[in-house]
């Protein structure tokens, strides 16, 4: 697996490269600004990118813009965006840029190495990984249907699905059997009127419906 890494802080960039390479993820290019990133993202060999939101030259949201740009050029190109802070607004923009293969996490999550590497792999495999803090913010919203049809337990399951977890991981987290989780996910798909399709795709659609990004 080959990824592009963009991070302007040298300390963090080197740390991240070390971390990824230690887990058999090759860093094909590592850049520290938006201009070089644009070049790096034209590398057709790369399987995905891990990007910092804030980078030179303007130190605002060029990482995010680069992610959106590359995904409009190469639909479904896996991108994991890291940031010192998370905004629902940005999560929606990323999710709206195409189905799946997208991640949006607080930089702090890198400290939890196992989860972070897992997240990178899941995004490259086409999954959706959204930071728990964004999910908590969305959870607190009073919203109208069709999400209101879900039971609190189904909401928990959907929240964990949005974080990009597998049924087995969700079962472990909620201390229930994997069968029970499958039952919940099926019920969620039905309640959200999602068409019958491959399970992975439906999971992504469920998360999108939940974030109301259509």
């Amino acid at each position: 697996m080959r990824v592009v890494v963009a991070e302007d802080n040298a300390l963090l960039r080197d740390g991240m490269i070390r971390l990824l390479e230690a887990h058999d993820i090759t860093v094909s290019t590592a850049v520290d600004n938006a201009v070089d990133l644009d070049h790096a993202l034209r590398d057709t060999e790369a399987d995905g990118a891990v990007l910092d939101v804030r980078m030179p030259p303007t130190h605002t949201d060029e990482g995010l813009r680069a992610a959106l740009a590359v995904r409009s050029r190469r639909p479904g190109f896996p991108v994991l965006v890291l940031s010192q802070y998370v905004e629902q607004l940005y999560a929606r923009e990323l999710l709206a840029s195409g189905e799946g293969a997208v991640g949006y996490l607080l930089k702090d999550r890198v400290a939890n190495v196992g989860d972070f590497i897992d997240g990178v792999r899941r995004v490259v495999a086409g999954g959706t990984v959204i930071d728990p803090e964004v999910i908590a913010a969305i959870m607190s919203r009073r919203r109208q249907q069709p999400i209101d049809r879900l039971t609190p337990r189904e909401r928990d399951v959907l929240g964990l699905m949005a974080e990009g977890r597998s049924n087995a991981a969700i079962a472990a987290q909620l201390h229930v059997t994997e069968r029970a989780v499958t039952k919940h996910t099926n019920s969620i798909f039905t309640k959200l009127d999602l068409p019958v399709a491959a399970d992975d795709n439906r999971r992504v659609l469920a998360v999108l419906a939940w974030l109301q990004v259509e």
């Binding site: 804030r54 130190h59 605002t60 949201d61 010192q84 802070y85 905004e87 629902q88 607004l89 929606r92 913010a137 919203r141």
Partner: peptide, 19 residues
């Protein structure tokens, strides 16, 4: 940070989303 990134309108939209 979102105010620096997106200006007043973007930042107000972000505030609205968090309600």
């Amino acid at each position: 940070p979102v105010l620096a990134d997106r200006g007043l309108v973007g930042a107000v939209q972000a505030l609205a989303l968090d309600m």
